[in-house]
Structure formats: C-alpha cells, structure tokens
C-alpha cells in the first residue's frame, strides 16, 4: 500500500504551528516512514503534484490569496485539519476584526508613528498584491474543515497523536494536558 500523502500550509499564521510539528523531535523520522509529503513549506514543494490524503492548515484567511490556497487545499486533500487557534478562530490577526479595514490600512501606511517615506500617501493597491478581506475569517467559515486541533501552537504530541490516529485508523486519545488553547 502506498503511503498517505500529507500537505501543509501557513495562511495568516506565524509558522509556529509548523514549528510545533517539527517539535515531534526524532519522531519526524517515523513520520517520513509513515507518510509522504507533497505541497508544504517543509519540503518547499510549491504546487500540488498529486491528490493528497491529509491537509494541515495553519492560520486563518486574511486576504484573497489565503482563500485561494485554502480552496486549493480543499480540492486536493481528502481530509483538512485546522491546526492552531488562528486557523480555528482567526487568532492574533483577527484582533483587527473590530476595526474597519480602511482604518487599519491608514494606520499602517499613512498615519502610523513609524510611517516616514510615504510622501505620496499611497496605500498599496497593485493588482499583484492579494486584496485584504474585510475581516479575518476562521478556515471553517470558508471551506469545510474536518478536524480541529486547538492550541497556540497545538502541542507537538497532539499533532503527532492526531496524525498517527488518522493514518492508522486508531482512536485518538486526548489526554487532558495535551488539548490547550494557549
């Protein structure tokens, strides 16, 4: 039987959840025995080269590119997992959700105390730049997400146990110390 294929991505996240995945330490050797990686920042594969079994999503959706990548993952992965608070509820980027987008952009590019050289008062609007969404969206409000692993980041043991349970078809045990929101 061929190995299950895993893809990962970081949307509006800080890569902390990917670091936590690497925190499984020497079990990473077991992991590459268990699965094959496709599109992921870990191996730097930029585009899906085949259909995947499991997609790990870090971060929520704050711009049009995040939405595009997330929909691409949904199309190419059988199972999608929201990894971490940002994917689950928007997280730190979602702290802008109560502030109108114009105000955010004006603070960043026009009025902020460290804005010095923007003499022409331009808010970047090149069509190449992904457009920011009105607010940051949790992944499950954009596409169907199958499982959620909370934490900031989710404990390495939680990610490992969840992956192993999913791959081997065994029941996922959730010890109290492992599921935490921070």
């Amino acid at each position: 039987m061929s190995k299950p294929i895993v893809a990962t991505t970081s949307l509006a996240g800080c890569f902390g959840c990917h670091m936590s995945l690497l925190d499984i330490d020497e079990r990473i050797l077991d992991l590459i025995e268990l699965v094959e990686f496709n599109k992921s920042p870990i191996n730097d594969i930029k585009k899906f080269t085949k259909k995947c079994d499991i997609g790990l999503i870090e971060g929520g959706c704050c711009n049009s590119e995040n939405v595009h990548v997330l929909k691409d993952f949904r199309e190419n992965c059988k199972i999608l997992i929201s990894v971490g608070e940002c994917a689950i509820m928007g997280g730190l980027p979602a702290m802008r959700n109560g502030i109108p987008i114009r105000e955010c952009l004006e603070e960043a590019y026009l009025n902020g105390p460290s804005v010095k050289n923007n003499t022409e008062k331009i808010i970047p609007n090149d069509p190449e730049i992904p457009i920011m969404l009105d607010r940051v969206y949790p992944c499950h409000e954009v596409v169907k997400i199958d499982f959620h692993l909370p934490g900031c980041p989710p404990r390495a043991d939680l990610i490992w146990d969840a992956l192993v349970a999913l791959i081997t078809g065994s029941e996922l045990k959730l010890p109290y110390e492992v599921v935490k929101f921070d």
């Binding site: 929201s82 689950i88 509820m89 928007g90 979602a94 959700n97 109560g98 607010r135 949790p138 499950h140 409000e141 499982f147 959620h148 692993l149 909370p150 959730l174 109290y176 599921v179 935490k180 929101f181």
Partner: peptide, 22 residues
Amino acid sequence: LQALAYRYSMMVPRFPYTFPQR
C-alpha cells in the same frame, strides 16, 4: 470559561464567531 471548555472537550465552537466590537 476556558477550563470548562477543556472539561467538555470543546475543539471549536459549532456557531459562527461574531467578533463584536468591544
């Protein structure tokens, strides 16, 4: 509140977030 969410194994709320302005 967080401790109760842990006790009742909440992974994600089933309802959409409202993100109120407070």
